[in-house]
Design a protein around this nucleic acid. Sequence first.
DNA 1: ACATTAAGTGATT
DNA 2: AATCACTTAATGT
Length: 215
Amino acid sequence: MEQEILEARISDAYGFIFEKPLISQMAIQGEYAKVPSGFTLMEPGETITSMPLLLTGSIKIMREDANGNELLLYYLERGDTCAMSMNCCLGNKKSEVIARAEEDTEIVRIPVNFMKDWLCEYDSWKTFVFDSYNSRLHEMLEIIDSIAFMNMDQRLYKYLHDKVKLTGSTTIHNTHQEIATELHTSRVVISRLLKKLEQKGGIELYRNKIEVLDF
DNA sequence: ACATTAAGTGATT
DNA sequence: AATCACTTAATGT
C-alpha cells in the first residue's frame, strides 16, 4: 500500500491520539496487513516481533486450556492494540494467548524496536501504551470475577452486550454452541439462559441468530 | 423423504 | 453449572 494512503488510514483511526510526526513514522516503519476472517494471528508459544494496530475489523483474544478449549478474553477493535503483544515485545517473551480475526481485519504491524524507541520519543505513544495496559487489565479482572463467582448469566449478558456494540448490529449471528465455547461452558447452559432472557423480553431467539431488543 | 445440525427440556449429580 | 439422554425444529441433499 502507498505510504501516503497508509498514513491517511492510520490517521483516520489514530489521529485523535497521536501527533502527526508519529503517525508518519508509523506509516514508514509499519507494515500493512490484511487479515481474513477466522485467520489465527498468533498462538501460544510463538515469539512476537511486532505489535498490531487495528485499522478496521476486530480480533478475538483467547486463552486455551490443555484440551484445546477456548475462553474469550476480550476483543480488539479499530484504534486498539494488544496489551499481550506489548508485554511480549518489551520482555522478549512468548505469546500466552491466541489471537484470531473475528471478521476481515486490517492492521499495521509495528516492529518491536520502534515501539521501544517511541516510548521515549513520543508522549502520546507512552500514554497510549499505558492506557491500553490499564484497560486490558481491568477487563481481565472482570473475567476473573465472573469466572470465580460463576455468574454465567451475567457473563452471557455482557457477551451479548459487547457483541452488539462490536458489530453495531442488534442481530447476533452465532449458534448457542459457539457462544458456549467462547464462554467455556456447555451449550445446554447457554440455551437455558438465553431462553430465560427471551421470556423476560430482552431478546428473540432464532436458528443461528439472536435478535437483541432491550439494551 | 431422509439425514444432519441447532435448539429445547427433564432429570440427575 | 455440568452432563446425559431424549425430543423437537429447521435446514440441506
